[in-house]
């Protein structure tokens, strides 16, 4: 199944709807990396909420996507990893090093917005600050 990719302002949003084959994953990678350049996107959100299994190939491909997009000058956030999936990934030894992950879509957007604002706080400015 092909993953729909939405263009939302400066961001691209890929929302995975169901389990993907290896070919689907590779296609997602190619399309995202190509789109980032074409639309001059600054950020990419990959929503994996619907995935209840992430094996080594899926994880590696997600990591590749994030790294390739970084090289193309944009940020990637993986959002919606399920608690069970997260635990089984680390058990397998897959930890998505150097890839930004956030709880859900909302948090992902907040992270990208914080990057755009040039804020460099470790967790981004997702948390509302008291203005003096």
């Amino acid at each position: 199944m092909e993953v729909p990719i939405l263009k939302q302002g400066e961001y691209l949003i890929a929302s995975i709807q169901s389990a993907l084959t290896d070919a689907d994953l590779l296609q997602l990678r190619d399309v995202l990396v190509e789109h980032v350049g074409r639309y001059r996107s600054r950020g990419v959100i990959v929503d994996v909420t619907a995935l209840d299994v992430m094996d080594s190939f899926a994880t590696r491909t997600l990591r590749d996507i994030a790294h390739m997009i970084r090289l193309r000058g944009a940020e990637t956030v993986i959002v919606g990893i399920q608690p069970e999936v997260a635990f089984s990934m680390v058990q397998l030894g897959l930890t998505l090093e150097e890839v930004v992950t956030r709880l859900d879509f909302e948090e992902g957007i907040a992270y990208l917005n914080s990057k755009k604002a040039g804020s460099s706080t470790k967790l981004g400015s997702a948390i509302p600050r008291r203005t003096k």
Binding site: I81, F87, T101, L123
Partner: peptide, 13 residues
């Protein structure tokens, strides 16, 4: 250690 890593995957430190 794995728990800490899994929490990071959910976006938490």
């Amino acid at each position: 250690v794995q728990t800490v890593e899994a929490a990071r995957l959910l976006g938490a430190t």
